[in-house]
Every structure is written in structure tokens, then in C-alpha cells.
Simulated assay, not measured.
Amino acid sequence: MMGEGRSLTEEAILRLKAMILSGELAPGERLPVERELAARLGISRSSLREAVRALALVGVLRTRRGDGTYVTSLEPGLLLEATGMVADLLQESSPVWLLEVRRMLEPGATALAAARMSPEELSGLRECLERLERAPDVEELIAADDEFHARIADAAGNPVLSSLLRSLAGRTLRARLWRGVSDADALERTRLGHRAIFRAIERRDPELARAAAASHIAEVEDWFHRGAPA
């Protein structure tokens, strides 16, 4: 029986989700043919099609033309891709909201990276910092800035945390670009903030790394609170 207040498509989505969570449909597995699956779930084929389309949009299912529909790998990066699109579509005060979320997540990721980053990862982060220092213009500096933070998030060793932080980059990337163009001192402050973060990670000091990342993000956030447009 359909759940109270739920549409047929929502019910179909929930039943497919239950099959995946129970292991009846495993990552990478092909779904049964439409007629068979609809009968098994007790739903119409049209509701099943709508449910499949919805789950494909959020990275749970993938349809291969001429081959059927499969459960994806269900990796965090794939499932959280939609978060980035939602973040980009936020309007009005969204840069400040997203920076507040970054302030809650990124210092913790930076602390984890200070404890877990391999020598090879640290070397890559150093090279990224050097590119940031040498960047001749705002666009190249921001590209290096984005890579710097992505490397730290990946080195934290938590794919969910890394994917969430990457999903916030689109909107905040544009915000940093605006800031670099409109604030003459912003580029040097950005370099100083990244140097402090790198030194803390290099020293393998998680709490110092946490504080450096929090200070860096709070400085950008404060600039927006003082009235910068999105």
C-alpha cells in the first residue's frame, strides 16, 4: 500500500532504495527488466520509469543505452555531485551561508590532513603553494587556491568530507574571484593564509592547522558580512 501523502513515483523511489540498502541490488548490478521489476515492486511501469530517472539524476542509477539500467558505484563523490549544483543555484546571501559551512567543515579536514598527509601529498601541496605564490593574476591564483584546498580535503582521508568540500567550491570560487578583483590587499592576505596552513601541516600539528584554516576562512567570511555582493 502506498505511504500516506506520497506520490506513486516517491513510493517507487523508496522501494528501489530499499532494494539497494538491503543488498538485493548491489553497486554495479544491472536492474531486472522493467516489466519484471515493476511487478516485483508492485508499482506501475510508468512510476518505475520516473523513479529510475530521478535516481539517475542523483547518481544512484545509470542507464546505458541498449544495455539496461545499473546501480552506480555509490561512491561519495558521485552521490554528492548534485550538492554542488544546488550550491551553485543558491542566491542572495548564499556565499556567506556556504562560507559558514566551509568554516565548520574545512578546519576539521585540515587537522586530519596534518595528521594523515603522506610525504608525497605534502610535496604536491608545497608545489601547489609555490604556484599560488607565483601566480601572475587573480584567475591563476584562484585556480591554485582551489587545488590547494582540494588536496588538503583529499589528504584528510574521508571521501564524504572531501566530496562535500569540493561541492562548495563552485559558488565560493566565484566569490573569491570577485574578492580578488575588488580588494587590492586580498591577494596578499590569501597568500599569507595559505602559507600559515601549509606550515602547520608541514609541522604535523593538527590543532595549529585547524586554527590556520579557520582563520583563513573567517577572514573571507568577514569580508562578505561587511557587504560584498555575490
Rank of each mutant, 00 (worst) to 15 (best):
E188P: 13
I152Q: 00
V181K: 13
S7V: 08
L208T: 07
R131A: 13
Q91T: 10
H149E: 09
M1R: 11
E221H: 06
S118E: 06
R40I: 12
W97G: 08
E133G: 02
M2F: 07
C128T: 15
A214W: 08
R6D: 11
A186M: 10
Q91K: 08
D222Q: 14
T9M: 11
E221W: 04
L25P: 04
E221V: 02
M104F: 06
L168S: 09
G23I: 04
A51F: 01
N158C: 04
E147I: 08
G28E: 02
A113D: 12
A115G: 14
L79Q: 00
I43H: 09
I142A: 07
H225V: 12
L61K: 00
G84H: 03
V52H: 01
P119G: 04
D88I: 00
G124Y: 03
A200N: 08
S46Q: 08
G5Q: 10
G68W: 03
A218H: 09
A212M: 09
L14A: 15
V138T: 13
S123W: 12
S167K: 00
L168Y: 08
R179S: 12
N158G: 01
M1L: 10
R151T: 00
R53H: 08
V71F: 03
V220Q: 07
R65G: 13
D154M: 13
E139C: 10
G84C: 06
R199M: 07
R102A: 06
A209M: 02
I152E: 00
E50Q: 15
A26F: 09
R40T: 15
T69H: 01
L132V: 04
R199N: 10
A196F: 04
I13D: 01
S22G: 08
A135Y: 10
I142Y: 07
E106M: 07
P32G: 09
E188C: 09
G108S: 11
L99Q: 06
A230V: 12
M117V: 05
A143P: 14
R134G: 12
V181Y: 15
P159T: 02
E75D: 10
A143T: 14
R166T: 01
W97M: 13
L192P: 05
F148K: 09
D205M: 04
L105P: 07
E92W: 14
L99E: 05
A56Y: 02
R191N: 05
L79Y: 00
N158K: 02
A196K: 11
